[in-house]
Design a protein around this nucleic acid. Sequence first.
DNA 1: GAAATATAGTTGCAAATGTCCACTATCTGG
DNA 2: CCAGATAGTGGACATTTGCAACTATATTTC
Lengths: 161, 161
Amino acid sequence: MDARSKTPPTSITEVTLDVLEDTLSFYIRTMNIAVSRDLDDKLEGLDVAKGTGKITTLLLVDSHPGIRPSIIAELILRDRSATGRLMEQMEDHGLITRRQSSTDSRVQELYITEKGAALAARIRPLVTEQSRDFFKFISPEEQQQLMDILKRAYRRIVGLP
Amino acid sequence: MDARSKTPPTSITEVTLDVLEDTLSFYIRTMNIAVSRDLDDKLEGLDVAKGTGKITTLLLVDSHPGIRPSIIAELILRDRSATGRLMEQMEDHGLITRRQSSTDSRVQELYITEKGAALAARIRPLVTEQSRDFFKFISPEEQQQLMDILKRAYRRIVGLP
DNA sequence: GAAATATAGTTGCAAATGTCCACTATCTGG
DNA sequence: CCAGATAGTGGACATTTGCAACTATATTTC
């Protein structure tokens, strides 16, 4: 419950968020929407639209030639099936190629294409910049704090040391 | 680019995230997946499944009787159309009711039903608890820090003072 | 007071995403 | 050599969200 007034609120400023006001999950979930939207705008038309999936994959394949889908799946927190489709999509776009591993024929090795590499090079600064700009109203120290904490959380969740 | 070894990585521990390693957006987006999934599990079967939308709406309507959809839309960062459907859904589930405002007939006033109120009461502690538990591996002080920063960001984005 | 502009909500359409599950192929360990 | 794990695929499906167009009603402006 909350401070209830007789008349319904007519502006967001008259509203409190109930328990969500102090709920970390709420802010993470909501900020996600905002950040993602902003990122999409900044990357508009870049073949790597919506979703952390594509960006992460592109960069990962670029910097770890031969990486396999299942590893990417773990890192982006999706199941193999979703990840597979993502790979397919990126292959269709000519960004990566898939090759069967010679040592274990169940696994695929992913490699970046020229086009993919070019895109990766182009995207890297954009992604960094977007993040910096988006959060520029909080101090660099706080950004760092925030990131340290979230990084720790992330690593713990995906099972990194 | 990144430390590249000749052989492809076979475990996530051998992988670095390229520039994403230091990109706040990446962590927000990824943590969002994790938190949301966890929350869904905790709330399973509770008529308020997937999405911040439903929870926020329920609590908001419960603590601000007569609140209108457009305000909720702003707070949950969705457009009116998506929000409208959300309201419809919740009405179908018997959680809220919609009534035309007597002072401005364009506007709807939302009210909680008994069922909705009961659910809100039940959910409040769950949501709080979920958030606390999910982040329990980071210290309370840091959780607080994190929340303060994100709260500030959120308020700025939706345009709250 | 009439016209122009803004706001609230609805609806159709479409696209994209993610999930569950079952299935095949292949590896590894006992 | 068999049992059980792991990698990838494909199907079916539900869900969500966004855009754009449209109506109704308020508000502002001249």
